[in-house]
């Protein structure tokens, strides 16, 4: 299975990825101008996560790799968030 030809994106696809990433950056900047209180952090992080997803899926080819890589990346993020959560259990209730 690993001998199948590597997937190569077309130039057009590359450009549309770039445009999507730029638009998302300006959306995030725009969000800071709107008063949303605590929600703005959440929105900004969601936008950053979408950008990270696009880069990892297309630029870093995760979308075309064997599932092992995708599963491990997802597990890694879960692990990090879980560690963060457990650490916060101390600070929130202190």
């Amino acid at each position: 299975m690993e001998h199948k030809k590597t997937h190569i994106l077309s130039l057009k696809a590359q450009i549309s990825i770039l445009i999507a990433l730029i638009v998302l950056t300006f959306m995030a900047i725009g969000v800071t101008k709107i008063e949303m209180g605590a929600y703005s952090l959440a929105v900004i992080l969601v936008i950053a996560a979408i950008q990270a997803y696009i880069i990892m899926a297309y630029h870093m080819h995760l979308k075309f790799e064997s599932p092992f890589f995708r599963v491990m990346v997802i597990l890694l993020f879960i692990l990090f968030l879980a560690v963060l959560f457990v650490t916060f259990l101390d600070y929130i209730y202190r």
């Binding site: 995030a28 900047i29 969000v31």
Partner: peptide, 12 residues
């Protein structure tokens, strides 16, 4: 960098 940018520059 995307996360650094969001967390340092984009604090409202």
């Amino acid at each position: 960098w995307i996360f650094l940018f969001s967390l340092f520059y984009l604090i409202t």
